[in-house]
Amino acid sequence: MTVAAIEPGKRFVRTRHVARKERQQSVAKWIFFSMTVAMIIPLVAIVAYLLWKAAPSLNWQFLVDVPKRGMREGGIWPAFTGTLYLVVISLAVSAPIGVLAAIYLNEYAKDNWLNRLINLAVINLAGVPSIVHALFGLGAFVYAAKLGYSILSASLTLAIMTLPVIIASTREALASVPMSFREACWNVGATRWQTIRSIVLPNSISGILTGVILQVSRAAGETAPIMFTGAVFFKAVEKGKLFSYGLDDQCMALSMHLYTVSTQVPNVKESIPFATAVVLLGTVLLVNVSAIGLRVWLRNRKKW
């Protein structure tokens, strides 16, 4: 019999074939590990390099001061507030539209060809390059709607750009709420709206907010859309004043300012563009960290 045919001492030992598989496994592990390291190194290097180069200019004065001597000295206050304006206004427009549309698409819309088409359009729109949005914004808001080169035009362009991503991330958050919760509601006679308000939204709000807040970094970082529609090289505002722009004003923005001081102005103090980048990075980081904090807080309140 086969059982008796193998000597007990030879059972379960490592054969050449097994040894090869084990070698392959350890090679695979090292490849994945080294790729992880390769991903972390540039990340750390970028941040460290930025901070090192920016150090001479990094101080409170740099943030709240206005640019001086043709942007060769001074601070970045108008660009900083400009970016805040653009981000806040664009998300104030895109977040409600995006979230409510996603609720409709996920909770109400039937699965038919029209909705599949809308879905496809949303996904593709999310992949449209920002320069295309920029051109659309120029045509639609600056010229057709006669809003001119203004904060409003630029914000609306950014809103159009972030909208599809907000729809997609909100739908994902809604879809992660188990179907069984909805069934439970329907079967005691809850309307769809009651189901959404009492169960679906409370259990997906953290995901929805995360998706929205992550768009802050995109809105803050994009240059092309605002360059075409409302951001300018220089705009004089009062130093340290938060509400320094009107909606129909043109504005400065951090991303645009970074481009200007690094490429368009000769003899800029070296640390200025780097410090601008650090402020942009810091702003985005601050928003993302607060998003994570919010998510953790909301998740701890989640009850399943």
């Binding site: 069984s180 919760f181 069934e183 439970a184 079967n187 005691v188 809850a190 169960i199």
Partner: peptide, 30 residues
């Protein structure tokens, strides 16, 4: 009204992610 009078119980118990109390009164509230 129909679903209020004809309730359903499922394969996997599906209590709502709220308290025991709120689960029982959920129907009354809505």
């Amino acid at each position: 009204e129909l679903r209020k009078s004809v309730g359903m119980v499922f394969q996997r118990p599906n209590p709502l992610p709220i308290s025991v109390y709120e689960n029982v009164v959920f129907g009354l509230r809505i």
